[in-house]
Design a protein around this nucleic acid. Structure first.
Lengths: 145, 145
DNA sequence: CCGAATCCAACAAGATACTG
DNA sequence: CAGTATCTTGTTGGATTCGG
């Protein structure tokens, strides 16, 4: 994602804030990993690799709606971060196997918690959305319940 | 985010997959909440509201580098999903107070787990990245260690 | 003080076609 | 099989300006 945004503050403000926090907010390592999760495919790939390694095309079949381009890109990013390992077997038609690393496996624990929350609460979220949208549309407060 | 991507499969493939899974993959509710976390500011706002409600400008001061536009937009989205509540006090200069809801609070638990993981492992991720980048640049395998 | 509205640059990501 | 390369689009989000 974007690097070094400054919001709508003056450079002087930014300087003061940097002094106070001890680091540039935009470079926060926590934001960094959170960004990865927003990458739309990382979680899906990681969970797919949880139990067994997979070849490139096996992954593509497993994920349904990913394009070859995004699959390659996501895998590269995961490999770069040490969450996934890549092994090339120079067989006749060459095959490449991707596997989750120990680090990736450890990341799956908190991810699972999040997925569990999503699974348990998406109905509540959808209800809240329906209420909000109805009110915005003009429905005073009834007809929704 | 985008709705209804189809990857690089034929419509027939998509149809077959939909039948097999029982739902359109792109509409998966879990993907939906994961997308929210990728929104770059949602987690930050949510954690800022964890202990006490805040006014709009207090939030802007608390987050450092968010723009007014993104703060408004993120808060609207969180309110819509029922994670945050919005209360308007029609005082002389009107003040608006944002507070985290019970649902939002419950979501903070898995988020905390993820943040803890990030905090504990970002050093390892950075090492992996350095190794990967060095190898890609041409450094055979040494000089990194 | 709390936004809404508009404009615009940067980027993410899909479609398509080609390679070893 | 496992990618690359190129093109194009939609979305994100900062800057700026205006309003109640």
């Amino acid at each position: 994602m974007s690097r070094l945004p400054r919001g709508n503050q003056s450079p002087a403000d930014a300087e003061r804030i940097r002094k106070k926090l001890g680091f540039e907010p935009a470079l926060c390592p926590v934001r960094d990993v959170l960004d990865q999760l927003g990458d739309k495919w990382t979680v899906l790939i990681l969970t797919t690799l949880r139990h067994e390694p997979r070849r490139f095309s096996a992954l593509q079949r497993a994920v349904p709606d990913i394009s070859k381009r995004m699959l390659t890109e996501t895998l590269r990013s995961l490999e770069r971060d040490g969450l996934v390992t890549r092994a090339v077997y120079p067989t006749k038609p060459p095959s490449v196997e991707y596997a989750i690393s120990a680090l990736g496996l450890s990341m799956l624990a908190p991810i699972d918690a999040l997925v569990a929350w999503a699974d348990a609460n998406h109905a509540a979220v959808n209800r809240a959305r329906a209420r909000f949208d109805a009110e915005a549309a003009g429905t005073p407060a009834d007809l929704v319940a």
